[in-house]
Protein backbone atom coordinates (compact mmCIF):
# COMPACT_ATOMS: atom_id res chain seq x y z
CA UNK A 1 0.00 0.00 0.00
CA UNK A 2 1.43 3.36 -0.92
CA UNK A 3 1.14 5.82 1.87
CA UNK A 4 0.04 9.25 0.92
CA UNK A 5 1.18 10.59 4.27
CA UNK A 6 4.77 9.93 3.36
CA UNK A 7 4.44 11.92 0.13
CA UNK A 8 4.89 15.68 0.32
CA UNK A 9 1.40 16.97 1.03
CA UNK A 10 0.23 19.27 -1.77
CA UNK A 11 -1.95 22.14 -0.65
CA UNK A 12 -5.45 21.24 -1.69
CA UNK A 13 -8.33 23.60 -2.24
CA UNK A 14 -11.95 22.87 -1.49
CA UNK A 15 -12.46 22.23 -5.18
CA UNK A 16 -9.91 19.40 -5.06
CA UNK A 17 -12.21 17.51 -2.71
CA UNK A 18 -15.08 17.60 -5.19
CA UNK A 19 -15.44 15.07 -7.99
CA UNK A 20 -16.44 15.75 -11.58
CA UNK A 21 -19.80 14.01 -11.16
CA UNK A 22 -22.88 16.16 -11.43
CA UNK A 23 -25.18 15.72 -8.42
CA UNK A 24 -28.68 14.34 -8.92
CA UNK A 25 -30.01 16.89 -6.41
CA UNK A 26 -32.75 19.36 -7.35
CA UNK A 27 -31.81 22.98 -7.96
CA UNK A 28 -31.93 24.81 -4.62
CA UNK A 29 -31.35 21.69 -2.55
CA UNK A 30 -29.56 22.40 0.73
CA UNK A 31 -27.26 19.43 0.16
CA UNK A 32 -25.19 21.38 -2.40
CA UNK A 33 -24.12 23.68 0.40
CA UNK A 34 -23.29 20.73 2.62
CA UNK A 35 -21.01 19.40 -0.12
CA UNK A 36 -19.37 22.81 -0.37
CA UNK A 37 -18.96 23.08 3.39
CA UNK A 38 -17.53 19.57 3.65
CA UNK A 39 -15.01 20.21 0.87
CA UNK A 40 -14.04 23.46 2.56
CA UNK A 41 -13.61 21.73 5.89
CA UNK A 42 -11.43 19.01 4.36
CA UNK A 43 -9.24 21.61 2.65
CA UNK A 44 -8.92 23.53 5.88
CA UNK A 45 -7.90 20.40 7.78
CA UNK A 46 -5.37 19.62 5.01
CA UNK A 47 -5.98 15.90 5.30
CA UNK A 48 -4.82 13.87 2.31
CA UNK A 49 -7.80 12.81 0.21
CA UNK A 50 -6.71 9.19 0.41
CA UNK A 51 -6.91 9.26 4.20
CA UNK A 52 -10.55 10.28 4.34
CA UNK A 53 -13.42 7.78 4.11
CA UNK A 54 -16.92 9.15 3.56
CA UNK A 55 -19.66 6.62 4.25
CA UNK A 56 -23.35 6.95 3.48
CA UNK A 57 -26.58 5.00 3.30
CA UNK A 58 -29.51 5.68 0.98
CA UNK A 59 -31.41 8.87 0.26
CA UNK A 60 -30.85 12.14 -1.54
CA UNK A 61 -28.19 13.32 0.89
CA UNK A 62 -26.54 9.89 0.95
CA UNK A 63 -25.44 10.51 -2.64
CA UNK A 64 -22.80 12.83 -1.19
CA UNK A 65 -19.72 10.51 -1.45
CA UNK A 66 -19.88 10.27 -5.24
CA UNK A 67 -19.51 14.04 -5.46
CA UNK A 68 -16.29 14.07 -3.48
CA UNK A 69 -12.77 12.96 -4.27
CA UNK A 70 -12.13 10.92 -1.16
CA UNK A 71 -12.64 7.20 -0.53
CA UNK A 72 -16.33 6.54 -0.17
CA UNK A 73 -18.93 3.90 0.40
CA UNK A 74 -22.54 4.30 -0.67
CA UNK A 75 -24.11 1.40 1.18
CA UNK A 76 -27.59 0.23 2.12
CA UNK A 77 -30.36 2.26 3.69
CA UNK A 78 -29.83 3.09 7.34
CA UNK A 79 -26.48 1.42 7.96
CA UNK A 80 -23.98 4.19 7.25
CA UNK A 81 -22.97 4.50 10.90
CA UNK A 82 -22.40 0.76 11.26
CA UNK A 83 -20.31 0.61 8.11
CA UNK A 84 -18.36 3.71 9.14
CA UNK A 85 -17.75 2.15 12.57
CA UNK A 86 -16.20 -0.87 10.86
CA UNK A 87 -13.95 1.35 8.75
CA UNK A 88 -12.73 3.37 11.72
CA UNK A 89 -12.18 0.41 14.05
CA UNK A 90 -10.28 -1.47 11.35
CA UNK A 91 -8.28 1.60 10.31
CA UNK A 92 -7.90 4.10 13.15
CA UNK A 93 -5.49 6.07 10.93
CA UNK A 94 -8.32 7.19 8.65
CA UNK A 95 -10.55 10.22 9.07
CA UNK A 96 -14.02 8.72 8.89
CA UNK A 97 -17.11 10.74 8.09
CA UNK A 98 -20.62 9.33 7.79
CA UNK A 99 -23.37 11.25 6.06
CA UNK A 100 -27.06 10.83 5.42
CA UNK A 101 -30.55 12.09 5.92
CA UNK A 102 -33.10 12.12 8.69
CA UNK A 103 -34.89 9.02 7.42
CA UNK A 104 -31.68 7.08 6.90
CA UNK A 105 -30.21 8.04 10.26
CA UNK A 106 -33.17 8.35 12.61
CA UNK A 107 -35.79 5.97 11.20
CA UNK A 108 -34.39 2.87 9.51
CA UNK A 109 -30.99 3.52 11.05
CA UNK A 110 -32.26 4.78 14.41
CA UNK A 111 -30.80 1.92 16.38
CA UNK A 112 -27.35 2.49 14.93
CA UNK A 113 -27.64 6.21 15.77
CA UNK A 114 -28.25 5.36 19.42
CA UNK A 115 -25.38 2.94 19.58
CA UNK A 116 -22.99 5.15 17.63
CA UNK A 117 -23.67 7.89 20.20
CA UNK A 118 -22.95 5.61 23.14
CA UNK A 119 -20.05 3.77 21.47
CA UNK A 120 -18.27 7.07 20.78
CA UNK A 121 -16.00 5.90 17.98
CA UNK A 122 -13.90 8.80 16.70
CA UNK A 123 -15.84 9.74 13.60
CA UNK A 124 -18.13 12.51 12.39
CA UNK A 125 -21.75 12.15 11.33
CA UNK A 126 -23.26 14.74 9.04
CA UNK A 127 -27.01 14.36 9.50
CA UNK A 128 -28.79 16.32 6.76
CA UNK A 129 -32.29 16.96 8.02
CA UNK A 130 -35.03 18.15 5.66
CA UNK A 131 -37.92 16.52 7.51
CA UNK A 132 -39.01 14.61 4.43
CA UNK A 133 -38.19 11.57 2.29
CA UNK A 134 -37.16 13.22 -0.96
CA UNK A 135 -35.87 10.31 -2.99
CA UNK A 136 -39.19 8.49 -2.76
CA UNK A 137 -41.03 11.71 -3.59
CA UNK A 138 -42.19 13.29 -0.41
CA UNK A 139 -43.23 11.13 2.53
CA UNK A 140 -43.08 12.13 6.19
CA UNK A 141 -39.83 11.39 8.00
CA UNK A 142 -39.11 10.88 11.71
CA UNK A 143 -38.43 14.62 12.08
CA UNK A 144 -41.60 15.74 10.28
CA UNK A 145 -44.10 17.71 12.37
CA UNK A 146 -47.24 15.70 13.20
CA UNK A 147 -49.58 18.04 11.30
CA UNK A 148 -47.73 18.07 7.95
CA UNK A 149 -50.41 16.79 5.59
CA UNK A 150 -48.70 16.76 2.21
CA UNK A 151 -47.22 13.28 2.48
CA UNK A 152 -49.31 10.88 0.39
CA UNK A 153 -48.97 8.13 2.97
CA UNK A 154 -50.08 10.42 5.79
CA UNK A 155 -52.64 12.75 4.21
CA UNK A 156 -53.95 13.88 7.60
CA UNK A 157 -50.49 14.23 9.12
CA UNK A 158 -48.42 11.65 10.93
CA UNK A 159 -50.10 12.43 14.23
CA UNK A 160 -46.95 11.46 16.08
CA UNK A 161 -44.33 13.66 17.64
CA UNK A 162 -41.11 14.07 15.69
CA UNK A 163 -37.74 12.90 16.91
CA UNK A 164 -35.56 15.66 18.40
CA UNK A 165 -32.05 14.72 17.24
CA UNK A 166 -30.24 16.74 19.91
CA UNK A 167 -32.21 15.33 22.83
CA UNK A 168 -32.03 11.83 21.39
CA UNK A 169 -28.27 12.06 20.97
CA UNK A 170 -27.76 13.47 24.47
CA UNK A 171 -29.86 10.71 26.00
CA UNK A 172 -27.81 8.14 24.11
CA UNK A 173 -24.55 9.57 25.40
CA UNK A 174 -23.22 11.52 22.42
CA UNK A 175 -19.92 13.32 22.94
CA UNK A 176 -20.31 16.21 20.52
CA UNK A 177 -23.35 17.81 18.92
CA UNK A 178 -23.43 20.82 16.63
CA UNK A 179 -26.22 22.18 14.49
CA UNK A 180 -25.64 24.00 11.24
CA UNK A 181 -27.70 25.42 8.42
CA UNK A 182 -27.13 24.70 4.75
CA UNK A 183 -27.77 28.38 4.06
CA UNK A 184 -24.63 29.26 6.00
CA UNK A 185 -21.92 27.03 4.51
CA UNK A 186 -19.06 28.94 6.13
CA UNK A 187 -20.41 28.33 9.62
CA UNK A 188 -21.20 24.76 8.63
CA UNK A 189 -17.62 24.20 7.46
CA UNK A 190 -16.38 25.45 10.83
CA UNK A 191 -18.72 23.08 12.63
CA UNK A 192 -17.56 20.15 10.48
CA UNK A 193 -13.94 21.01 11.23
CA UNK A 194 -14.79 21.12 14.94
CA UNK A 195 -16.57 17.78 14.68
CA UNK A 196 -13.71 16.07 12.86
CA UNK A 197 -11.24 17.52 15.32
CA UNK A 198 -13.29 16.39 18.31
CA UNK A 199 -11.90 13.09 19.62
CA UNK A 200 -14.96 10.86 19.57
CA UNK A 201 -18.30 10.61 17.84
CA UNK A 202 -19.47 14.01 16.62
CA UNK A 203 -22.94 14.72 15.24
CA UNK A 204 -23.32 17.65 12.87
CA UNK A 205 -27.06 18.14 12.53
CA UNK A 206 -27.60 20.15 9.36
CA UNK A 207 -30.86 21.89 8.59
CA UNK A 208 -30.80 21.25 4.84
CA UNK A 209 -33.98 22.41 3.13
CA UNK A 210 -35.85 20.36 0.54
CA UNK A 211 -37.26 23.03 -1.72
CA UNK A 212 -39.06 20.47 -3.86
CA UNK A 213 -41.29 18.76 -1.28
CA UNK A 214 -41.03 21.27 1.57
CA UNK A 215 -40.96 24.63 -0.23
CA UNK A 216 -41.83 26.34 3.06
CA UNK A 217 -38.36 25.42 4.31
CA UNK A 218 -37.07 28.39 2.29
CA UNK A 219 -38.19 30.28 5.37
CA UNK A 220 -35.57 28.55 7.54
CA UNK A 221 -33.20 31.35 6.57
CA UNK A 222 -35.17 33.63 8.85
CA UNK A 223 -35.71 31.01 11.55
CA UNK A 224 -32.13 30.05 12.35
CA UNK A 225 -30.27 31.80 15.13
CA UNK A 226 -26.78 31.20 16.39
CA UNK A 227 -25.67 30.02 19.80
CA UNK A 228 -22.42 31.69 20.66
CA UNK A 229 -21.97 30.56 24.26
CA UNK A 230 -19.52 27.96 25.45
CA UNK A 231 -20.96 24.53 24.72
CA UNK A 232 -22.22 22.53 27.66
CA UNK A 233 -19.86 19.77 28.68
CA UNK A 234 -22.30 17.61 30.59
CA UNK A 235 -25.54 16.20 29.17
CA UNK A 236 -27.77 17.49 32.00
CA UNK A 237 -26.77 21.10 31.38
CA UNK A 238 -27.22 20.71 27.65
CA UNK A 239 -30.58 19.04 28.12
CA UNK A 240 -31.79 21.83 30.41
CA UNK A 241 -30.37 24.58 28.24
CA UNK A 242 -32.08 23.35 25.09
CA UNK A 243 -35.26 22.00 26.66
CA UNK A 244 -37.31 24.72 25.03
CA UNK A 245 -35.16 25.02 21.91
CA UNK A 246 -37.04 25.65 18.68
CA UNK A 247 -34.71 23.39 16.75
CA UNK A 248 -33.15 26.28 14.84
CA UNK A 249 -30.29 27.10 17.19
CA UNK A 250 -27.03 26.67 15.33
CA UNK A 251 -23.52 26.30 16.69
CA UNK A 252 -21.69 23.82 18.88
CA UNK A 253 -24.39 22.88 21.36
CA UNK A 254 -22.57 20.19 23.31
CA UNK A 255 -18.99 18.96 23.64
CA UNK A 256 -17.91 16.52 26.33
CA UNK A 257 -14.50 15.07 27.07
CA UNK A 258 -15.64 11.44 27.00
CA UNK A 259 -12.71 9.40 25.67
CA UNK A 260 -13.36 7.73 22.34
CA UNK A 261 -13.82 3.97 22.02
CA UNK A 262 -10.79 2.29 20.51
CA UNK A 263 -9.84 -1.07 21.96
CA UNK A 264 -6.18 -1.74 22.54
CA UNK A 265 -4.55 -4.17 20.17
CA UNK A 266 -1.59 -6.34 20.95
CA UNK A 267 0.63 -8.37 18.68
CA UNK A 268 1.83 -10.87 21.24
CA UNK A 269 0.83 -14.01 19.35
CA UNK A 270 0.43 -15.36 15.85
CA UNK A 271 -2.41 -17.53 14.63
CA UNK A 272 -0.15 -20.59 14.58
CA UNK A 273 0.55 -20.16 18.31
CA UNK A 274 -3.05 -21.10 19.06
CA UNK A 275 -2.55 -24.66 17.80
CA UNK A 276 -0.82 -25.44 21.08
CA UNK A 277 -4.02 -24.99 23.05
CA UNK A 278 -5.66 -27.87 21.20
CA UNK A 279 -2.85 -30.41 21.12
CA UNK A 280 -3.43 -33.41 23.40
Amino acid sequence: MSDSQTAPAPLLTAQDFKSDIKPIWCPGCGDYSVLTALAKACAELARPRARIALISGIGCSSRLPAYTNVYGFHGVHGRALALATGVKLARPDLTVIAAGGDGDGLSIGGNHFLHACRRNVDMTYILMDNQVYGMTKGQASPTTAPDWCEGKLTPTGTGIAPVAPLQLALAAGVGFFARGFAGNPNELARLIVAGITHPGFAVIHVLSPCVTFRAEQRGWKQAVHGFDGAPATDPATAMARFAGDDGFTTGILYASATPPFMPERQMTMTAADFDRGFIV
Binding site: A82, T85, G86, L89, A90, R91, M267, T270
Partner: peptide, 30 residues
Protein backbone atom coordinates in the same frame (compact mmCIF):
# COMPACT_ATOMS: atom_id res chain seq x y z
CA UNK B 1 -7.43 -14.49 20.18
CA UNK B 2 -7.96 -11.45 17.93
CA UNK B 3 -6.94 -9.09 20.72
CA UNK B 4 -3.58 -10.89 20.94
CA UNK B 5 -2.95 -10.96 17.19
CA UNK B 6 -3.50 -7.29 16.44
CA UNK B 7 -7.14 -7.74 15.52
CA UNK B 8 -10.44 -6.79 17.04
CA UNK B 9 -13.87 -8.22 17.81
CA UNK B 10 -16.75 -5.82 18.23
CA UNK B 11 -20.06 -6.79 19.77
CA UNK B 12 -22.52 -4.99 17.52
CA UNK B 13 -25.99 -3.73 18.43
CA UNK B 14 -27.63 -6.17 16.02
CA UNK B 15 -26.87 -8.35 13.02
CA UNK B 16 -27.56 -5.49 10.62
CA UNK B 17 -24.80 -3.51 12.29
CA UNK B 18 -22.52 -6.53 12.47
CA UNK B 19 -22.56 -7.27 8.76
CA UNK B 20 -22.25 -3.60 7.82
CA UNK B 21 -19.31 -3.13 10.20
CA UNK B 22 -17.69 -6.13 8.56
CA UNK B 23 -18.25 -4.59 5.12
CA UNK B 24 -16.69 -1.35 6.35
CA UNK B 25 -13.66 -3.05 7.84
CA UNK B 26 -13.10 -5.12 4.72
CA UNK B 27 -13.47 -2.05 2.49
CA UNK B 28 -10.77 -0.52 4.68
CA UNK B 29 -8.48 -3.44 3.84
CA UNK B 30 -8.87 -5.83 6.78
Amino acid sequence: ALAKTGGLLVQAEDELAAINMVIGASFAGT
